[in-house]
Design a protein around this nucleic acid. Structure first.
Lengths: 292, 292
DNA sequence: GCAAAAGTGTTTTGGCTACACCCATGG
DNA sequence: CCATGGGTGTAGCCAAAACACTTTTGC
């Protein structure tokens, strides 16, 4: 991290002409997205390593085809269009570069320090993070300019994108503790073991399965679908669906809500993107989800 | 909230000329700040009501002098300058409109839906929130265009600023549970009762004082200054200072840090603003603080 | 001594951890 | 009948809640 920072400063001093001129120009506004999915780990894979190697988070990156940082990998992104909401812009940036359909989309942070630009125009990046389900990620074919990388083996990244990714991962790690984001990395239904593996992948450490299942069931947000599913060759496991707690009292519920951040009427998101959108989580500003 | 939303849409359709033209223009970028301080409650006030009426959060707002929303109150703000960091811009917006010195400053959220503009140019607002200490807030003289309002009695607000304020309050409420933000509403030293009152003011409910003091002391982040202070006419209380937990192991600490968000070298904040800045809280992106 | 706030002790509870254990299924 | 994963039981620990209690001060 420190190395990146030093590199930035060095480059700045390297005599690009008219720096002060560019610095006073109005800032450009871009939208970038950190897209995360569960990699093809052992989960759901019959021929996996017997050692129960933990699944990992993967993310798609795009190769830069121009300066600065030509040849480096970068977060998918695009420009902000004035007639689109920020979420919509993020959605479009995500879709046009990767053709993926996120099951979760949330604003992460806005970066805008002048030294991000590296001799280019001053740049403000509104960054979102997204989760796509495992099946979609594993079906994805890498191309020349878009490729998936595992969380712990990222290539050389453009700008401060390394920092941004770290931040997104941290946000995910903290958010699994009090929301349903983990389920967004799986399909609409899942076994408790699958969910458990997601938590382990995100947390990066082992979690007692027995206690995990009790805690999850005690939360009251999981509903037994009545179906059974077999991962390996053993006893089939019960299949659950995430169902948020009923809000008994609207007044009570209001305390936990963020007005204006997750009701579809105020998102400004176009209808074709809003299809199948759920708003079950008070902590999720906007959640484009697949079928439920 | 719903009413505001409806109003917005109505206004949009009301025949301002060339709406589509304006909508495709590049977005303007502004910076706004939600500034919060403890109001002149009973704490530190000898002639207060005997009923122990809880202190409250207050915030300064500025009156708009032009359309849209002329005459309404709004969050202090300014334009984003390309040669300043976002935090610096927020700091300047805050200082130029209110002349206050925040002890805490953190990015809140970026708002940018097209329907925020109300017929004006498409507008992206990068919103920060700030805490100033009580003494500075009570010393502030209201003017014609800048006035303090209590959290629960806000005037008619411009744009979606009502929503933004609610969100800032929610962030504060959740953040007192795992960081030292509460202390930023007081001076550098304080008694446990003062701190307790801050927590009650923010949470909006009573908190058992005996348990509160134990919990705070057990956290290990409070240091007894050895001094005593008397609020009323009774027994003097011990005065504490906030001292963050020592990071024994740098590797362990790294897990809790957000690289790039709270080391002064990367903030880009000008030196004169960085004076007396502390970086004790891994959760605080940047903390301009008064003397410590 | 009395009121009021500072500060301490004590019991109970509920959630979480660790880990032992039984059950269902395919081979 | 055994290996493997699904699923349950349970004892111990610890943090927080509730509230009774002692201490220090000004008047």
């Amino acid at each position: 991290m420190a190395a990146v920072s030093r590199y930035q400063r060095k480059k700045h001093g390297m005599g690009f002409g008219n720096v002060s001129e560019r610095r006073s120009a109005p800032p450009q506004v871009g939208v970038s997205v950190v897209i995360l999915a569960l990699g093809p780990g052992d989960a759901g894979n019959s021929g996996a390593s017997p050692d129960a190697a933990r699944s990992q988070l993967w993310m798609p990156l795009v190769k830069r085809v121009r300066q600065p940082f030509m040849g480096c990998w970068a977060l998918p992104g695009g420009h902000l269009r004035a007639d689109r909401s920020l979420e919509q812009s993020a959605f479009e940036a995500l879709e046009s570069t990767t053709a993926l359909h996120p099951r979760y989309l949330e604003q992460l942070y806005t970066f805008g320090d002048p030294d991000r630009s590296h001799g280019g125009l001053p740049m403000v990046s509104i960054v979102y993070w997204a989760l796509v389900e495992q099946s979609e990620a594993t079906a994805f074919e890498d191309g020349d300019n878009v490729r998936w990388f595992p969380e712990d083996d990222l290539p050389r990244l453009a700008f401060d994108h390394r920092t941004i990714i770290e931040y997104a991962l941290e946000r995910l790690r903290s958010k699994i503790e009090y929301s349903d984001v983990a389920t967004r990395l799986l399909g609409p239904t899942f076994t408790l073991r699958q969910l458990h593996d997601v938590y382990e992948a995100i947390a990066g450490q082992s979690i007692d399965l027995a206690n995990f299942r009790r805690k999850m069931l005690a939360s009251g947000d999981l509903e037994d679908t009545g179906m059974k599913r077999r991962e390996g060759r053993q006893r089939p496991a019960a299949v659950y669906r995430y169902v948020p707690e009923e809000s008994v009292n609207p007044a009570t519920r209001a305390v936990f809500e963020r007005p204006g951040f997750h009701t579809s009427d105020r998102t400004g998101m176009a209808a074709e993107h809003r299809r199948n959108t759920t708003h079950d989580d008070a902590l999720a500003p906007l959640i484009p989800s697949a079928q439920r």
